[in-house]
C-alpha cells in the first residue's frame, strides 16, 4: 500500500500545532488545538485508505476492486461528528468560565497548589532571610529589611489564600441547589458584591500556612495576621492570574441556573438550602479588631 506523503506530512504538522495549542491555559485555545489536531488525526485516518486517485463512488465502469476504500472515510465522518459535539461542549464551557471568572483560563488545582505553596514558602523564607542578613549591616537594619521582604512575600500569600478560599467555598456539593425542591428562601440577605467575605472560608487556606508555624518566633509576622483594609473584595480582584472573576456577580452570570440565582446570591455565607434561611448576615469586615495589634507591632 502506498500512502501519499503530503497527507502524512499535513497530518503530522496539524497534530503538532494542535498539541501545542492544547497545552495552553485558555479554553478557547485548547478548543482550537483540539479541532486542529483532530483534523490532523482525521487526515491520518484517511491516509489509511491507501493510494490517492481511486474513484470515490461506485458508478458504471468502476470495478468493486478499484473504488477507494470507504471505511476510513466512514471513521473520519464519525470522528468529525463527535468533534462537532465536543466543540459545542467546550465552547459552552469556555463561555461559562468567562461568566464565572471573567476569563476562560483553566486555573491550577487547589490541592496541587497547596502542596506546591508549602514547599515554595519554606524556600522563599530561607531565601529572604539570607538576603536580609546580607543587606543589613547591624541587627536593626537587617530586621527592617527582612520585614520589608517578608511583607511582600505575605502579600503574594494572601492573594493565593484568597484564591484558595474561594475555590474551597465552591467545593461544596450544590446538588441540592440544582435538583432540590426547597423553595427559594425569602428575605435572604443579599450581600454586597454577591459574596461578602467570600475568601474567608476557614478550611481552604489551611495548608499553605503550615510552614509559618515553625517560624512563629519572628515577631513581625503577627501583625500581618490582619487582612488588608479594602477587604476581601479587593483581594479577590488582585488575586493572581487565576482569580479574575469580576463577572461572577453580574446579573446575567447566574442565568444558566435560572431560579437558583437568588438562592446563590448570598454566596457561601448564606446556608444553601439549609433549613435556616434566616441566618444572620456575615460580619462585613472581621479584620478590624485585628488592626490595633498590627499597628502596635509595627511600632515595635
Amino acid at each position: 500500500m502506498t500512502v501519499s506523503a503530503t497527507l502524512l506530512a499535513c497530518a503530522v504538522v496539524l497534530t503538532f500545532v494542535g498539541s501545542i495549542l492544547v497545552l495552553t491555559r485558555s479554553l478557547t485555545r485548547v478548543l482550537m488545538g483540539v479541532i486542529i489536531s483532530g483534523n490532523g488525526v482525521n487526515l491520518f485516518v484517511l491516509a489509511g485508505s491507501g493510494q490517492a486517485g481511486a474513484p470515490p463512488l461506485l458508478y458504471p465502469g468502476v470495478g468493486h476492486d478499484t473504488v477507494s476504500d470507504p471505511f476510513p472515510q466512514a471513521i473520519v465522518l464519525t470522528a468529525v461528528v463527535i468533534t462537532l459535539g465536543t466543540t459545542a461542549f467546550v465552547l459552552a464551557m469556555a463561555y461559562r468560565s468567562t461568566q464565572l471568572t471573567g476569563s476562560d483560563f483553566v486555573p491550577d488545582d487547589i490541592s496541587d497548589r497547596r502542596v506546591a505553596l508549602r514547599a515554595e514558602l519554606a524556600s522563599q523564607r530561607r531565601r529572604l532571610r539570607a538576603k536580609a542578613r546580607a543587606r543589613g549591616t547591624d541587627r536593626r537594619t537587617a530586621r527592617g529589611a527582612w520585614r520589608e521582604l517578608w511583607r511582600e512575600q505575605r502579600r503574594l500569600l494572601r492573594n493565593d489564600r484568597a484564591y484558595q478560599a474561594r475555590a474551597g467555598d465552591y467545593a461544596d456539593d450544590r446538588w441540592d441547589d440544582v435538583l432540590g425542591a426547597d423553595p427559594v428562601p425569602e428575605g435572604v440577605p443579599e450581600g454586597p458584591g454577591g459574596a461578602p467575605g467570600a475568601p474567608d472560608a476557614p478550611d481552604a487556606p489551611s495548608a499553605p500556612d503550615a510552614p509559618d508555624a515553625p517560624d512563629a518566633p519572628d515577631a513581625p509576622d503577627a501583625p500581618r495576621a490582619a487582612r488588608p483594609e479594602p477587604g476581601p473584595q479587593a483581594e479577590r480582584d488582585t488575586s493572581g492570574p487565576q482569580g479574575r472573576r469580576a463577572m461572577r456577580t453580574a446579573p446575567d452570570a447566574q442565568a444558566p441556573r435560572g431560579p437558583q440565582a437568588e438562592q446563590d446570591a448570598p454566596g457561601p455565607q448564606g446556608p444553601r438550602n439549609s433549613p435556616d434561611p434566616q441566618a444572620p448576615p456575615p460580619p462585613q469586615d472581621p479584620h478590624d479588631p485585628q488592626d490595633p495589634p498590627a499597628a502596635e507591632e509595627e511600632s515595635r
Partner: peptide, 22 residues
Amino acid sequence: DPVRAEPPPLGRNATLVLAPPQ
C-alpha cells in the same frame, strides 16, 4: 458555622488553621 467563622490569622497562630475544631 465554620463557613461564617473569622479567618484564622497567618503567622504564629497558623497552627490553628490546620484543624479548626468547629
